[in-house]
Design a protein around this nucleic acid. Sequence first.
DNA 1: TAAATATAGATAATAATTATCCGCTGAAAA
DNA 2: TTTTCAGCGGATAATTATTATCTATATTTA
Lengths: 144, 144
Amino acid sequence: MDSEKRLEYLSRVIRERGNRLTPQRLAILRALVDNDGHPSAEDIHKEILRDFPTTSLATVYKTITLLKDIGEILELGFGDDGSRFDGRKPYPHPHLICTQCGQILDSEVDNLDKLIDSLAFPNQFSVKTHRFDIFGLCSDCAQK
Amino acid sequence: MDSEKRLEYLSRVIRERGNRLTPQRLAILRALVDNDGHPSAEDIHKEILRDFPTTSLATVYKTITLLKDIGEILELGFGDDGSRFDGRKPYPHPHLICTQCGQILDSEVDNLDKLIDSLAFPNQFSVKTHRFDIFGLCSDCAQK
DNA sequence: TAAATATAGATAATAATTATCCGCTGAAAA
DNA sequence: TTTTCAGCGGATAATTATTATCTATATTTA
Ligand SMILES: [Mn+2]
Ligand SMILES: [Mn+2]
Ligand SMILES: [Zn+2]
Ligand SMILES: [Zn+2]
């Protein structure tokens, strides 16, 4: 997963669908593809403010919405705790979520789709997507 | 899973911890254990109103909070779409969620804990709980 | 250049849930 | 029996991440 490559890909898709790649928007994209920590909208906003101090939080949300429309961002909603975003791997995948420090780790596993199919089949359920969150303590927090 | 047995169990636990089993509270418990459709707070409230027309929605939420404290209800939060509750099986288990009609089906699978452990182990992650949602169309909605 | 469209930023609105307040109830204590 | 008092129900206000709205500005198109 090359951040620069992914940034170029997203930039191209956005331009091709007639949207504009403003400096603020590019900065938001860069923050998303450079960060593998699943940042919140606030996290992204804070980072953008360094280069574009007048950027509104609404602008961050608008770019996230744009990426959602393209299907190039994965949103992990946590109700009142807000959402965290994965702009590097927009497809569903398991996450290890530390309930102590808030860190979110990516995880991969083979044959998860097969398991999901085996759950859906008996109910004649047609699968579109999924969400698999594992909550607990990361290695750092577990030591304390 | 006997609804009546579960109702008796919940009633006993609530009394044993010094809480009171008011008629409204009992009605809310009954609505929860009788319904395997993963009702929302509103759903429960509507049902309670038939027998106790002055019940406040806040009372429903308070009883749900009580059950959460005991660990005897599973909350499935969906952000702005609110939460759905499982008062029959309070432990984590996979759900098949129809994005068309909102129906939520229970699902069970062997060795899910083993799979989760295999994901957590490489990261030295200490698992506490999990959430596994599968989104798609139920058999009814898929036919249309 | 002129017109059309998209976007940024500011601000108001949304809505599920939670907090707060107050009067009531019921069981235990005196 | 009377008093006490924590728990509770109901009403209402507050919370807060996100979305909608509005206007000025920037960019593209003709
Ligand atoms: Mn991820
Ligand atoms: Mn369930
Ligand atoms: Zn941690
Ligand atoms: Zn359906």
